[in-house]
Design a protein around this nucleic acid. Sequence first.
DNA 1: AGTGTTATTGCAACCGATCTCAGCAACCGA
DNA 2: TCGGTTGCTGAGATCGGTTGCAATAACACT
Lengths: 340, 340
Amino acid sequence: MTISTEEENMPDLSIDVVAKAAGVHRSTVSRAFSRPEAVKSETREHILRVAEGLGYTMSPLAQALRRKTSNIIPLIVPDITNPFFAELAKTMTQAADERGYQLMLCVTNGDPAKSDGYFTAMQAMYAPFGIVAPSTKVDTEALKRFAFGHKVVVIDRVEGDDSVPTVTVDSRKGIMLALDHLHSLGHTSIGYVSGIAGTHTAQDRMDAYLELTAQSGSTPVVLDSGSDLDAGTRGAEHFLAMDNPPTAIIAANDMVAFAVISALGRSGLRVPEDVSVIGFDGLALGARFNPPLTTVRQPIADMGHIAIELAEKQNVDGSVDHIVLEPELLVRGSTSELRK
Amino acid sequence: MTISTEEENMPDLSIDVVAKAAGVHRSTVSRAFSRPEAVKSETREHILRVAEGLGYTMSPLAQALRRKTSNIIPLIVPDITNPFFAELAKTMTQAADERGYQLMLCVTNGDPAKSDGYFTAMQAMYAPFGIVAPSTKVDTEALKRFAFGHKVVVIDRVEGDDSVPTVTVDSRKGIMLALDHLHSLGHTSIGYVSGIAGTHTAQDRMDAYLELTAQSGSTPVVLDSGSDLDAGTRGAEHFLAMDNPPTAIIAANDMVAFAVISALGRSGLRVPEDVSVIGFDGLALGARFNPPLTTVRQPIADMGHIAIELAEKQNVDGSVDHIVLEPELLVRGSTSELRK
DNA sequence: AGTGTTATTGCAACCGATCTCAGCAACCGA
DNA sequence: TCGGTTGCTGAGATCGGTTGCAATAACACT
């Protein structure tokens, strides 16, 4: 006697079989699920019960096709290998499915063609909106080529276009925090190493550094303004080659801070004993770096939630907001009092 | 005079409008795209040209709905914040869309309910197959509750079930590499800190360590067998509390190696001067750690490609393979000659 | 010329929902 | 008792493709 495992030939559980099983029309089943108030509660419960029993769930595909709107929302990032985006992705996944969305992670590797592809794909999937994390400027330009562009929020500043909602953190404030921290430790000569190219955020941080340093009467020392992952390494090299190097370094983001410290270490320089280094991002990873990284924390989790809220808000009332969040200083072990 | 941007009221570009525009029936257009050889090349080219002109692309939704198979394939990982999974995701995205698939990243955060949800979702989306990266054992158990289970490849060993294709790296070989390296540097007392809980891989590495150490006549010293991110920290604490601590430490994966080094550093111990530490993973990040991490490299990119190949292979000829890859030693700066 | 392929294309049903429109019953006030 | 609401459910078209089947055209062979 063979026990027929129910999984073997399920006759493709569709709305119709549920309807038949419940003795109602398919439209009623449909309503029972997606517009509960339009069905007599008695009927609805019966249907739901039957559906439950059959193990039925609606096909998101068919639904999306008909409704012309799905629940999958793309998060477009240049590089998931960068912990900043990874953390963003993590919190956004959560934020997304708290609201019943499915986050679809799209990695462009900085290739604009790729992001174009994702845009069209998402459009075809009837994504209700999308989120774009700091990518190159051209990426965000591309947005506009798509109708989809009116339904996207960007986690970066977008120049000359207020029509797209954005959420960012106050770069100037962040740099100020870093600078103040370093000043309070006695440092006056503070270098800078730049970050991800092409993003307005990177630009803003750099500008803020330049401006604030000048304001305080010191001379800015840009150790490297490059964009790639090796900026840190080059920055360190530059530093080592200087006659009179700064006593502290601000890195445009945690990843380059890591690279700077690593490169410095290879040359026998210790952080924070010999040089203080401060990052910008507040990655969880930084807490386990050697030494634990002092950094300016961005509220990444908040950014994720807010991005989605902004998108939803725009969807209902068409409003386009620009939220700027406050960064916060996270003192760990990579900075210390200036010692002569 | 207003230039009507073509984007404004596209009458919902469907296969029918292309058909009309090309003067053929919708089915012909369909074939022109998905079964080129079934259409006179002349006609096909004409259709394609027309479609191109209109900027038409097929709706993946409608396609999937009818064909009962889509091109989106899920990659299920416990935590994208862990660089190992991030790197895996990166190479897999690439491998996927080299073959015309769309990778859908699913993060479970170790929550089995979540992965269940993903499984059903993917089933509903008609994913042709899926990839599961080392998660807890129960996760992989869950696979079997789904018809989908017969179309998934796992990046981890799966106990007592040969029916699911797997790709792994030889843990024993990896540990051996690490041990040999350390031995060759003069270390004889070598500790171990464990990794991600619940995966067979973690288990295997630990077993290999235990076995190989015993074989070489030394006594194994498991500094921590925990699973969470703090295993590294605890391992280091344990190490520091020992009367006669090992001179080298093998970490079950790079992330815990980082944590170990960081914790050691906070207590004034330097790597590799005071202790040698070797990781397991070969993360790109390790090259920028302080010091650059010596580690056993897993061919992550290969794993990604192979996983997809395995899945496709199973799809066509039903074969179930178990590929085990060779790890390789990556000597960087966190290990050094034993000094008395 | 007659008949048997073979290559192309059109027809129409179908995938699994949604949604507008109608139909019908119960309910309300006059 | 009757027209008018209101509440609930069924019909059927539709979303954008796919595909088996039938029809026609083209070509080969005797």
